[in-house]
Computed example of a mutant assay.
Amino acid sequence: MPRDIASLAAAADRHDADAFVAHLAPDVKSVFANTEPVIGRENVKKATVAFWDTIEGVTHHILAIHESGDTVTVQFDIEYRRKDGKTVTLPVCNVLTFEGDLVSVSQVYADLAPLYA
């Protein structure tokens, strides 16, 4: 699987956990906003599904991708659809470190407070 950020984002938009974690290394380290690091593909899958359960839907709008060696930085506007029907769009930056074609480290920088306000 190539370093296909669009496919990774599309899997999240579909809430397809299996397709999402297929982009991750087995021992991936993931930090989402201000949460504690999650280690391992299955643990990331559980944490991701738990987050998705708090929202109705999500759409990633990729604004820019910058690649340097094994590091890819992605700038998004992410549109979250809340359970109450409201939509909140947040600026998000994700710094991804790759081992080959799989993400070994994912650090998502986002302020999620407006999503739950």
Rank of each mutant, 00 (worst) to 15 (best):
M1R: 08
P2I: 02
R3Y: 08
R3P: 07
D4I: 05
I5T: 06
A6P: 04
S7K: 11
A9P: 06
A11F: 04
A12C: 10
D13H: 01
H15N: 02
H15E: 05
H15G: 02
A17Y: 01
A17Q: 01
A19Y: 03
F20M: 11
V21K: 00
V21Q: 00
A22I: 06
L24E: 00
A25W: 01
A25T: 12
A25Y: 11
P26E: 15
V28E: 01
A33G: 07
A33I: 03
N34P: 06
T35Q: 13
E36L: 04
E36S: 15
V38M: 13
V38P: 03
I39K: 14
E42W: 07
K46L: 09
A47L: 10
A47C: 10
T48S: 10
V49N: 02
A50V: 05
A50I: 07
W52G: 00
V58I: 15
V58W: 04
H60I: 05
L63A: 08
A64P: 05
I65E: 02
I65M: 05
H66M: 11
H66T: 11
H66R: 08
H66A: 12
E67W: 08
S68R: 12
G69I: 02
D70E: 15
T71H: 08
V72T: 15
V72L: 04
Q75N: 10
Q75R: 12
F76T: 06
D77A: 14
R81C: 05
R82V: 06
K83C: 06
K83N: 11
K83P: 05
D84K: 08
D84R: 10
G85D: 10
G85K: 08
K86N: 14
K86W: 07
K86G: 12
K86Y: 09
T87A: 13
L90H: 05
L90Y: 12
P91Y: 03
V92W: 07
C93D: 03
N94T: 14
N94M: 12
V95R: 00
V95N: 03
T97A: 12
E99N: 11
G100E: 14
D101C: 06
L102H: 13
S106T: 06
Q107V: 13
Y109K: 04
Y109V: 14
A110E: 08
D111F: 14
D111N: 15
D111L: 13
A113H: 12
A113K: 14
L115Y: 08
L115W: 07
L115K: 02
A117I: 07
A117H: 10
